[in-house]
Design a protein around this nucleic acid. Structure first.
Lengths: 211, 211
DNA sequence: TCATAATATTTAAACGTATAGTTAAACCGA
DNA sequence: TCGGTTTAACTATACGTTTAAATATTATGA
């Protein structure tokens, strides 16, 4: 009975299952902490299948990185282009990044570990993507400065401020919340900004750079 | 000839040499990327010495973490107490953190990786230290709000903004500088804020939260 | 439509190296 | 000589990678 069926229905493409599992495991454990065996198990395939479909661990990681970090620039550009005023553009920029981090939770740990490792594994294409994002920001800031809306600020620092704040906050909150013994002072602040982190950060950054 | 002498003179305490080497290697490679053998080699001792002096890899890492991240609060408190106005206090707070990161380069990668791993290895004592630091910030902000110098802001977010900005910037600059192919637009900005990053960040944060 | 050949994909098992951790003996200053 | 300290050699296992056989899928020809 029960022909065999069970789980899979249409398999959803083996390679994709592997990539998805790899994304999770690399995000949780980092490159050296992630074991090929575990990725294979979580993907529900044999280890050799993984090698057949994708290749060795390095290749696998490069794929994950590209999948997670790549192709952000186009989306940001589109998001920013929808509005006109520099102030609105910057809001869109920040909001987009905050939302992307929400949608793509693996982003944060992978990025943090890459930075910790001095970007040792970052493929060129990802760096190009980051540069493209930065270029958008520079455009916004330049326009704002020209129109005398913004003061002059170092764009690279502003970018790091935006990204650093969002990523650190996102990762730090769960750690904080896990501490049951915290003094009330700490707990009492910071109520409900989980959902609108992007807006809160945008508010602060805008206030910081507006003339 | 050459009796054997060479380096050591008084050994500088074996355990300390090991800790120093471990700090470097863990910072460079992360927990699973760091190998006990390499730590022993860099410390110039045999692996068994390391086990005799300190213990297994976990113990070693816990020691490093505590050594690197612990005992910051007292210093910050002292630094902040030296000035009076909340604005000056906040400046001192930020400046202290920026300077500490400069003095202690291992701080950044270790902290980033710990956050990426959801603080899995963070010993209680380190979290207590971070809480103590946060408490100082809350004090500064509360005073500033009471004196109507600052607007109301979520302190935890502000802390993450300060730390996130500083750490991300510090780690991102070398990665950026390594890219020889960058478009001039990117390179041209951000001149000389290497040394006074703390001040620059303080300026931005203060502008963001001042009434 | 079916049988069979060719190809693509998956799998269990094995291999070799790297690595965390152990141990017993040598070393060395008091 | 005695105790703390260091050493090289060793063990067991974990892990990335490969192999060859099994199975599934597609193509071909009557």
């Amino acid at each position: 009975m029960i022909k065999k069926v069970i789980d899979v229905k249409n398999p959803g493409k083996t390679a994709e299952k592997i990539l998805a599992a790899a994304r999770m495991v690399f995000a949780e454990k980092g490159y050296s902490g992630a074991h090929v065996d575990e990725i294979a198990v979580r993907a529900g395939v044999n280890k050799a299948t993984l090698y057949y479909q994708i290749g060795d661990k390095d290749t696998l990681y490069a794929n994950v990185i590209h999948q997670v970090l790549g192709n952000t620039a186009q989306n940001i550009a589109a998001s920013v282009a929808k509005v006109d005023h520099p102030e609105e553009k910057l809001k869109a920029y920040i909001k987009y990044i905050a939302d992307a981090v929400d949608t793509n939770p693996e982003w944060t740990p992978i990025m943090m570990r890459e930075m910790a490792a001095d970007g040792a594994h970052l493929p060129r294409v990802v760096i190009e993507d980051i540069v493209a994002v930065l270029t958008i920001l520079i455009g916004i800031l330049d326009e704002g400065i020209k129109k005398r809306i913004f003061i002059e600020v170092p764009p690279f620092l502003i970018h790091m401020m935006i990204v650093g704040t969002i990523l650190f906050y996102k990762k730090a909150v769960p750690i904080k919340d896990r501490q049951s013994w915290l003094p009330a002072e700490i707990k009492v602040h910071d109520r409900n900004l989980k959902s609108n982190l992007g807006e809160e950060v945008a508010k602060l950054v805008l206030k910081a750079i507006k003339r």
